[in-house]
C-alpha cells in the first residue's frame, strides 16, 4: 500500500469460466500456480506494480467470474477498465468461439478508449490443443487487437502479455497528454479502416465525422 507509483492502470480479465483467468493473474501477481479449480466468486482483484520506461505503474487487475450468474456484477467493472484481456482456453473450442460474445460485452459496457488484448491460455497443453495459433491471430487481427498465447502453468508469456497491455495503455496516455487537458480538442483525424464490422455501429452514432 505504501508503495509510491506514477500511474494507476485498471485492467480487467474476462473470458469463459475455467479458461484460467485467475491462474494467469495468480501467476503474474504472486508467481504462483495452482491446479485446483476454484471458481471465482463475482470479482476479485490483485495488484502488481511494474516499471515501464522508468515510470512506476500500479496495475490493479480485476479478475472476473466467467460464470453467467455473476454477469451483472462483472459488467459493472467494464467501464472503469483501461485495459481488458480477453482470455480463452486453447484446448476449448467453445471458449474461443465465445470470445465474440465477450467482445460484444466490451462494446456494450466498456469505455470506448479501452485497450484490448486476446490471450490464448494453457498453451503448454499442446496435445489437447483445439484452437490453432493462427485462428487466434486471425481473430485478433480481425478486431485489430494484440494476441498472445500464454500458459499460467508453464509461466509462458504471462508477464509479457501484461507488460504489453500496460505499454499500450501508456502509449495511449502519452499521446493523450498532447491534447489540451482543458478539453479544447486538438485536431486529430482518425484514419478510416473499412473492413471493420465493429466500428460500423459506432460510425452511425458518431456526430462529428
Amino acid at each position: 500500500m505504501a508503495k509510491a507509483y506514477d500511474y494507476l492502470f485498471k485492467l480487467l480479465l474476462i473470458g469463459d469460466s475455467g479458461v484460467g483467468k485467475t491462474c494467469v493473474l495468480l501467476r503474474f501477481c504472486d508467481s504462483a500456480f495452482s491446479t485446483t479449480f476454484i471458481s471465482t466468486i463475482g470479482i476479485d482483484f490483485k495488484i502488481r506494480t511494474i516499471e515501464l520506461d522508468g515510470r512506476k505503474i500500479k496495475l490493479q487487475i480485476w479478475d472476473t467470474a466467467g460464470q453467467e450468474r455473476f454477469k451483472t456484477i462483472t459488467t459493472a467493472y467494464y467501464r472503469g477498465a483501461m485495459g481488458i484481456m480477453l482470455v480463452y482456453d486453447i484446448t476449448s473450442e467453445k471458449s474461443f468461439d465465445n470470445i465474440k460474445n465477450w467482445i460484444r460485452n466490451i462494446q456494450e459496457h466498456a469505455s470506448a478508449e479501452v485497450e484490448r488484448m486476446l490471450i490464448g491460455n494453457k498453451c503448454d497443453m499442446l496435445d489437447k490443443r483445439q484452437v490453432t495459433r493462427e485462428k487466434g491471430e486471425n481473430l485478433a487481427n480481425e478486431y485489430g487487437i494484440k494476441f498472445m498465447e500464454t500458459s499460467a502453468k508453464g509461466n509462458i508469456n504471462v508477464d509479457e502479455a501484461f507488460f504489453s497491455l500496460a505499454k499500450d495503455i501508456k502509449a495511449k496516455i502519452d499521446k493523450r497528454a498532447a491534447i489540451d487537458p482543458l478539453g479544447k480538442p486538438a485536431v486529430i483525424k482518425p484514419k478510416l479502416d473499412p473492413h471493420k464490422k465493429v466500428s460500423t455501429s459506432f460510425w452511425s452514432r458518431c456526430s462529428l465525422f
Binding site: 470506448a112 478508449e113 478486431y143 485489430g144 495511449k172 478539453g183 482518425p190 465493429v198 462529428l208
Partner: peptide
C-alpha cells in the same frame, strides 16, 4: 469530444 473521437478505437490505433 472524447467520445466522438474514440468511437474508433481500432482506427485510432492505426493512426497511432
Amino acid at each position: 469530444y472524447y467520445t466522438n473521437r474514440n468511437s474508433y478505437p481500432q482506427n485510432y490505433d492505426n493512426t497511432h
